[in-house]
Amino acid sequence: MRHYTLTASLIVLTIALVSWGQKGHKAIASIAEKHLTMNTKTIVNSYLQGETISDASIWADEISNDPQYKKTASWHYINLPLGLTKEQFTDYVIKQDKDNIYTAILKAEANLKDKTLNPAQKNQALKFLIHLVGDAHQPMHVSRAEDKGGNDVQVRFNNNGTNLHALWDGKLIDHEGFNYTEMAKKYDWANPEQVKKWQTDSPMQWLWESYQVSTQIYDEIKPGGNIDEASYKKSIAIIHLRIAQAGVRLAGELNRLFKDQQPNLNEKPIAPAAVVIPATKIAGTPLPKATVVKLADLKNSVGKNVIVTGKVFSLKDIKSMVLVNVGAAHPNQLLTLALKGNAKKLADKINGKTITIQGTVTMFKGKPEMVVNEPDLIKYN
C-alpha cells in the first residue's frame, strides 16, 4: 500500500491547474461511491434520479455557459495573494467580497440539510457539492487572479506548447493513460487511519492544502519552461494524493449530511430546477431565501442564509471594511458584522441602533460572522 504526504519533494512542481477535467472529477466521484454507507448511497441515488454519481460530477462544468448559471462561475475557485500564513489565509477566505468555492460548498451542504427545498433543488445542490469538493482539491483553484488560474502561463509538455490550465485540465492525467474507472481503482489506496483523518478535515483545511501546493508551484514555475519526465512524475504523485483525498472526503461529507435522513424513493424532481444562489447579495438581484434565527443561536447556523436582529454596541473602521460588534461590545459580541463595498456607508447610521441583517453565517476565531456588501441587506430604525 502506498502512502503519500504533502512533502516538499512532492510539492516542488513546475505546473499548475485550473480543472481536473472529466476524468479527474469522475474518478473522485467513483472513489467517493466506494466509501458511502448504504443509507447515503440510497439517498444519493434518489436525489440523482438514476444518474450515476460519476456522471453527475461534471454537471457543474457542463452548465457553465448557460445564462441561468452565469453567477455560479466564481463558485469553482478562490483567488488569494501569495505568502499568507494559515491564519491570514483563513481570514482572507472568510472575508472575500464575492461568492467563491468556500461559500458555495457551505451553501450546498446547507441546502442538502434544508427540509423546505424541493427534490430538484436537492438534486442541484448535490451535483454542485460533488463537483466543488473536487475543485477544492485542485491547487490552482486556490490561486491568483493575475494569471487567470494559469491560463496566461505558457509551458511546454511532450514537445508541444500549452498553458498551465490546459496542462492540468487533462494533459497530465491523459499522459498516465488510465480511464476514470482505472484511476479510481489505482488512486483509492488510503488505509482506514488515513480515511478517518481526512474525513475529519474541514473545507477550509482542503483549501489550505491546495494553497500550500499552489504556492510551491508559483515558486518553482518558469514561464515557457519544459515539463520533463521528472517533473511529470512529481506532479502525478500530487494528483494521486489530491484525487484520493477528494474522493474520501466527499464520501465523508455525504455520509455526515445524510446520516439522519431517511430515503424517499418516491421523490421525483421538479423541472426545471431553480438555481440556488449562495447567500451573498449581488447588486441588482433579488434576495435569496433566508431563515429567521436568534442572535444567540448563530453558532448553529454556520453556512446558512439567515435573518437576525441585534443591537450595535461598537464598530471599528479598518479601511478595507468596517467591523461592527452586535449583541455586545468587543470581545463579547454575539456577532461580528463585516461591512464591505456599498454597505460601509451605513456604519455611522447604525451605530448604537438595533438592526436586522441578512447574510451567510461563518465562524472566525470562535465568533459568528457575517459579511455584507449591499446596504439593502441591513434594516434599521
Score class of each variant (00 low, 15 high):
residue 345 K to E: 13
residue 23 K to F: 03
residue 163 N to W: 02
residue 57 S to K: 10
residue 356 T to P: 05
residue 184 A to S: 05
residue 105 I to D: 04
residue 141 H to P: 06
residue 181 T to S: 10
residue 134 G to Q: 12
residue 285 T to L: 09
residue 43 I to M: 07
residue 151 N to S: 09
residue 87 E to M: 04
residue 195 V to R: 02
residue 126 L to W: 05
residue 42 T to I: 09
residue 362 T to M: 15
residue 230 A to G: 04
residue 298 L to V: 11
residue 138 Q to N: 15
residue 317 D to W: 00
residue 303 G to S: 07
residue 139 P to Y: 04
residue 333 Q to W: 01
residue 197 K to Y: 13
residue 326 V to W: 07
residue 36 L to Q: 01
residue 198 W to Y: 15
residue 67 P to G: 08
residue 322 V to R: 12
residue 60 A to R: 13
residue 152 D to K: 10
residue 247 G to V: 05
residue 142 V to R: 11
residue 316 K to Y: 12
residue 129 L to F: 03
residue 182 E to Q: 02
residue 330 H to K: 10
residue 248 V to S: 02
residue 160 N to K: 05
residue 196 K to R: 13
residue 188 D to S: 01
residue 327 G to E: 10
residue 108 A to L: 09
residue 324 V to M: 02
residue 236 I to D: 00
residue 292 V to N: 13
residue 312 V to M: 13
residue 6 L to M: 14
residue 149 G to Y: 05
residue 312 V to F: 14
residue 348 D to N: 15
residue 238 I to M: 10
residue 55 D to R: 14
residue 79 N to E: 12
residue 228 D to R: 01
residue 358 Q to T: 15
residue 137 H to K: 13
residue 342 N to K: 15
residue 142 V to C: 14
residue 359 G to F: 08
residue 360 T to A: 10
residue 41 K to C: 05
residue 157 F to V: 00
residue 8 A to M: 11
residue 89 F to C: 01
residue 31 I to L: 02
residue 15 I to C: 14
residue 254 L to A: 12
residue 105 I to F: 04
residue 349 K to A: 05
residue 3 H to T: 15
residue 339 L to R: 09
residue 147 D to N: 11
residue 276 V to H: 08
residue 171 K to R: 09
residue 226 N to S: 02
residue 235 S to C: 05
residue 170 G to Q: 00
residue 267 E to R: 05
residue 283 A to F: 07
residue 273 A to K: 14
residue 319 K to E: 04
residue 269 P to F: 08
residue 266 N to S: 13
residue 247 G to T: 02
residue 112 L to S: 02
residue 160 N to Y: 01
residue 286 P to N: 06
residue 15 I to D: 13
residue 344 K to V: 06
residue 15 I to T: 15
residue 248 V to I: 13
residue 146 E to W: 07
residue 267 E to M: 10
residue 151 N to Y: 11
residue 109 E to N: 05
residue 70 K to P: 03
residue 353 K to F: 03
residue 50 G to C: 07
residue 351 N to F: 08
residue 37 T to D: 09
residue 169 D to Y: 04
residue 121 Q to C: 11
residue 292 V to I: 09
residue 339 L to A: 12
residue 225 G to L: 02
residue 178 F to Q: 00
residue 38 M to G: 08
residue 276 V to E: 14
residue 187 Y to H: 01
residue 214 S to F: 01
residue 378 I to L: 00
residue 366 G to S: 09
residue 325 N to R: 06
residue 312 V to E: 09
residue 32 A to S: 11
residue 153 V to W: 11
residue 3 H to V: 14
residue 48 L to T: 08
residue 232 Y to E: 07
residue 377 L to F: 08
residue 167 L to S: 00
residue 17 L to C: 12
residue 110 A to I: 05
residue 381 N to V: 11
residue 296 A to Q: 15
residue 160 N to C: 01
residue 147 D to C: 07
residue 193 E to V: 11
residue 206 W to S: 15
residue 104 A to M: 12
residue 218 Y to V: 06
